Simulated scan of single mutants.
Amino acid sequence: MTVSSDVKTAVASLKSAQASFEQFALSTENKQAKQMYTNAAQQVQQIIGQVEPRVQQLESEEPQYKGF
């Protein structure tokens, strides 16, 4: 695998984790747990925001990997 595909796989995994935390937050009635899951989802979103520019940088450096 290329660095580009590894980073894209990591971003996809992070998005999946974020969606899971959001789902957990929606499915619990425990306010403390809901807040914990919401915070976790927000933290993962921040990480995604930091990693996605690297994907764009890799794609601009190696256009043959764009879209994979």
Rank of each mutant, 00 (worst) to 15 (best):
Y65F: 11
Q56A: 14
A12C: 06
Q43Y: 11
F24L: 07
E52G: 09
V55Y: 09
A10D: 02
V55W: 08
E61V: 05
Q43G: 09
A41R: 05
Q18D: 03
Q18V: 00
I48F: 05
A41Y: 04
L26T: 12
Q43D: 11
Q43L: 10
N39W: 10
T2N: 10
D6A: 10
Q64K: 14
I48R: 06
V3W: 04
S60E: 13
S16W: 03
A25T: 04
S20V: 11
A40S: 12
V44H: 01
Q18H: 03
S16E: 10
A12M: 03
E29L: 09
M1I: 08
Q46W: 11
L14C: 05
A19K: 08
S20Y: 05
F21D: 04
E61I: 09
N30H: 11
F68L: 10
A40G: 03
Q57E: 15
Q23C: 03
E29G: 13
K31I: 15
K34L: 12
V44P: 00
S13R: 12
Q23L: 07
Q50D: 13
M36S: 14
K15R: 07
A41N: 01
Q46E: 12
L14A: 02
R54E: 15
F24S: 03
Q23V: 08
F24Y: 07
K15Q: 07
K8I: 02
Q35H: 13
S4Y: 11
V11F: 00
K15A: 03
G67T: 00
F68V: 02
A19V: 04
E62C: 05
V3Q: 07
Q42D: 14
Q35C: 09
V55M: 06
L26N: 15
E61T: 07
S27I: 03
T9Y: 02
L26M: 13
Q18G: 00
F24Q: 02
Q46I: 12
Q42F: 14
N39F: 09
P53F: 09
P53A: 07
P63Y: 08
S13K: 10
Q45S: 10
Q42A: 13
K15D: 03
T38R: 03
N39S: 14
T9R: 02
Q18I: 03
Q18F: 02
V51S: 10
L58Q: 07
E52D: 14
R54F: 15
E62Q: 14
A33P: 13
D6S: 11
S13H: 06
A17E: 00
V51F: 11
Q56W: 12
E59H: 13
K15E: 04
V7R: 00
N39I: 05
R54C: 15
P63E: 06
K15S: 02
K34V: 11
G67I: 00
A19E: 04
K31P: 08
V51N: 09
